[in-house]
Design a protein around this nucleic acid. Sequence first.
DNA 1: GTCTATAGACAGATAGAC
DNA 2: GTCTATCTGTCTATAGAC
Lengths: 208, 208
Amino acid sequence: MSGTDTARKLIEATQELLWERGYVGTSPRAIQQRAGAGQGSMYHHFGGKPDLARAAVRRSAEELRTLADAELAREGSARARVAGYLRREREVLRGCRLGGLAQDPDVVADPELRAPLSQTFAWLRTRLAEVLEEGRGNGEFGPALDPAGVAAAIVAVVQGGYVLARSAGAPEPFHEATDGLLALLDAHATGTGATAGAVTGAVTGAAS
Amino acid sequence: MSGTDTARKLIEATQELLWERGYVGTSPRAIQQRAGAGQGSMYHHFGGKPDLARAAVRRSAEELRTLADAELAREGSARARVAGYLRREREVLRGCRLGGLAQDPDVVADPELRAPLSQTFAWLRTRLAEVLEEGRGNGEFGPALDPAGVAAAIVAVVQGGYVLARSAGAPEPFHEATDGLLALLDAHATGTGATAGAVTGAVTGAAS
DNA sequence: GTCTATAGACAGATAGAC
DNA sequence: GTCTATCTGTCTATAGAC
């Protein structure tokens, strides 16, 4: 039990450090210190830095899917669920726990390390496309809306929003980008039901 | 002259390495080797790694602005110029020479290193907003279009497109995201002039 | 399971000769 | 301006005692 607990602590410490400092920027030494574990302990439970990183990335991918699905599986209109996803509370300046890793050449070069990123973003795009398709089916959106294309744009705008915010040193660009996209999406709204007037709400509403 | 030439080579080598491997992943040693310069030479011209990186990032920012403005200052409709910017030839899997650096904590922590990112993205958003505003003024786009918001979304989708492409190990997600955004923008087109039918072109047209 | 010792390679920079 | 030598610390991992 103590061993399993140590392994879990090591994975969690690695998750945090990968998020904060990336793969190159994360050393076994730093992991051990944050986990409160020694050298021997770490190398007993894991084969080394790549092995530990793979376990950490898989876990972060699960967490991300859980967080996203919590918004997308809610009750309510398709438009509201997409808006809920775009505006869910985020520590914007921390960036995306997965997306940030895509910048690292050592991550994209390792198939096992890259796979969780690839799969998670593919899943997210499919999940968003389903919601948009549903909205098109029930008349929330016009028939011209392309669910797959818009889903890709939504995921990209979130990832790029993080980049702009970190570059600016402030969260505003993230919200301006996501609200800008939401306003474009609302131009497809047919105006049936509660969706009307959503454009104004999208632009002025501040995400908490 | 030989000294100036060496300094230039060092800066160019640093630009390449920052793009490929990021700030943490770039060592003085690697810079010297790529530039064909020795230790003493590098430390004669520059104060160290941060100093050299600042010069390299400033130069990369200039290059990026030049490339973007080449598309946005063309002749043609606002819609065509935005589409030209989104579809200009890119080595998608290399990512953005500036945006990728925003992931690095050492970059965002150094004001001099972060400033070129911040300023360049701010300039790009303003420049795109001007083009969109022009398109709204001449009736290409409807009056409901929000230039600033859409401009932020465009820049974010490009940055996020890089993230999705590198995560997938393939350029397609980048083009799906940018084409998806372009299709949404076309929903604002008033249909006057050559803009009509642009939606189909946006979705099916493959960027070289 | 966890600890300490050890090791070769590299990071990042300084010093002084030429 | 450029070169070589040198230095302290860290990276990542292995070995073997406990």
